[in-house]
Amino acid sequence: MTSAQVFLALIAGLFLAPLAVGVLTGVDRRVTARLQSRIGPPILQPFYDIAKLMGKEPMLANHWLAFCSMLYLAGAVTSVVLFFLQADLLLIFFVQAVGSVFLVIGAMTVPSPYSQIGAHRELLQIIAYEPLLILVIVGIFLATGSFKIEAVYAMEQPLLFKLPLLFLVLGIALTIKLRKSPFDISASHHAHQEIVRGVYTEYSGPYLAIVEIAHWFEIVLILCLLSLFWSTSIVGLVLLLGITYFVEILVDNTTSRMTWRWMLGTAWITGITFSLINLLWLYYG
């Protein structure tokens, strides 16, 4: 990459991508409202929420929360920037795990039962989606012969044709990462509040804003991973992302939250079966 390209990649990764995801989240809430025959908030609502949280009084039960929220953001941002710099996929995945781990550790610093339960559920979510993401990345490796992102862009055919089942597996991981039903067990958006918002319970005010922004970066990363499945044309890419996200919203609105046992079982059994079939087909087909 030339230095101009690196500069552009940095701008895109650091600013444009999270802004786009902010808008996307707004559209998500709007579409959800329509599905529930409501009108819904303005498209820019997520930005208002963040700005409001930024302007609130800082109030913490343990100041390590501030430390951890910042490292969550750092991990998420670094992983996105690495993606835009076309680094190694497996490495990007491990870097984003840094963020998730610090989110959990932050929630665990406060001896509040809600926060503790949320932290553990978040850990269970992590072990549910981590193997799936690694397998998707391995699938990409088997299809392209390299873990580097540039190898995907060198493909002549969209990856989706080679990895249809792994795309579904990535869908499961995406649902967990987006905190959408039926996998919204550690913390959810919108009105569910049985566990007072789980892992987010003790993050408040500006620190909650940081955590939300970090979550946007995480969504950027996973959408980027999705976009690799149709890397050959912009139209295909946008269509794929749009349809996938719409299906996510549909699933979110038509399913109810399940238990962590069900989540772990589904994610591992379906995910690994699909991955194995797809990988074997790729390897021997």
């Binding site: 409202a33 009108i39 908030p41 009105a191 509040q193 918002r197």
Partner: peptide, 10 residues
Amino acid sequence: ERFGIINIGN
């Protein structure tokens, strides 16, 4: 939610 109002438990 039109006005950005969300019911929060915390």
